[in-house]
């Protein structure tokens, strides 16, 4: 992957900022998401809540199903591959996917290594619970980072924990004297040049979104106020009572995340939110997959 291509891939993530990326399983859902104001869609066979319920090994979606969604909408289409499964990624690149999510939602294919994303021309987004994890993914070639909030639960607590962890660690790095950066890189298990970048700029060198457990306009605005540059909403939309209305409300909440009057209006009469499961009630912590 040449440097231009990596810049272009980071640039695409910049264009998605301030937007909502929605999980969809059919071309019809993709159209609903697009007309509700999604800035991109994530094409997958089952949304995380159903993956969780079904159990078993979860893999990349059928390329034919992804193509159907690519044909249905004009916005960028993303799809997931298993952690470390570079052949699934090669297949998605062959069908010209706009972004690959190397995702803990699917069953990991490699318990040690992530995909060497520098080998690909298409961009990757990866999850991170903390700064070290985020910088390791960026070193592997990720052009975008997202939190690893617990997918399919409708519980925001983990996304909040990851975002606060990352912003807190970045603030600490910024405050460190330069001579401590090498040691900080060692402790974070991350490359020195990326640690230095965060120290100098106070932010990641790529766009950072929130993902996992978002179910309401308030959840989306919370993550934006905590420093997310945009949000992924998975099960929260199509597991709710009125997907169109909820999707449109979340889109507006991300734009005006600081305006409580607008947020109050947007939160009215959305019907039933996804039921959700609490963090303590789940058997499987997907965020623990891949580090």
């Amino acid at each position: 992957m040449n440097n231009d291509r990596y810049e272009l891939n980071k640039n695409l993530a910049q264009m998605l900022k301030g937007g909502v990326i929605m999980d969809v399983t059919t071309p019809e859902q993709a159209k609903i998401a697009e007309s509700a104001g999604a800035c991109a869609v994530m094409a997958l066979e089952r949304i995380p809540a159903d993956i969780r319920a079904a159990g078993g090994v979860s893999r990349m979606s059928d390329p034919k199903m992804i193509r159907g969604i690519q044909e249905a909408v004009s916005i960028p289409v993303m799809a997931k591959v298993r952690i470390g499964h570079f052949v699934e990624a090669q297949i998605l690149e062959a069908i010209e996917i706009d972004y690959i999510d190397e995702s803990e939602v699917l069953s990991p294919a490699d318990d040690r290594l992530h995909i060497d994303k520098t080998k690909f021309a298409v961009p990757f987004v990866c999850g991170a619970k903390d700064l070290g994890e985020a910088l390791r993914r960026i070193a592997e070639g990720a052009a975008m980072i997202r939190t690893k909030g617990e997918p399919g639960t409708g519980d925001i607590i983990q996304a909040v924990r990851h975002m606060r962890m990352i912003t807190g660690e970045m603030a600490r790095l910024q405050a460190l004297p330069e001579e401590e950066l090498y040691n900080a890189a060692k402790e974070l298990a991350a490359p020195y040049d990326l640690v230095k970048y965060v120290h100098d700029h106070g932010k990641l060198p790529v766009v950072n979104f929130a993902a996992g457990g978002l179910a309401t306009p308030a959840d989306a605005a919370l993550m934006m106020q905590l420093g997310a540059e945009g949000v992924f909403v998975g099960s929260g939309i199509f597991k709710s009572g009125n997907p169109e209305k909820r999707a449109a409300a979340i889109v507006q909440a991300v734009t005006n995340y600081n305006d409580s009057q607008i947020l109050a209006k947007l939160s009215e009469g959305l019907g039933e939110a996804m039921v959700g499961i609490n963090e303590q009630e789940i058997q499987l912590l997907m965020a623990e997959r891949g580090k």
Partner: peptide
């Protein structure tokens, strides 16, 4: 950005 989103 995305013109469909901004237009809406």
């Amino acid at each position: 950005g995305e013109s469909t989103v901004m237009g809406k």
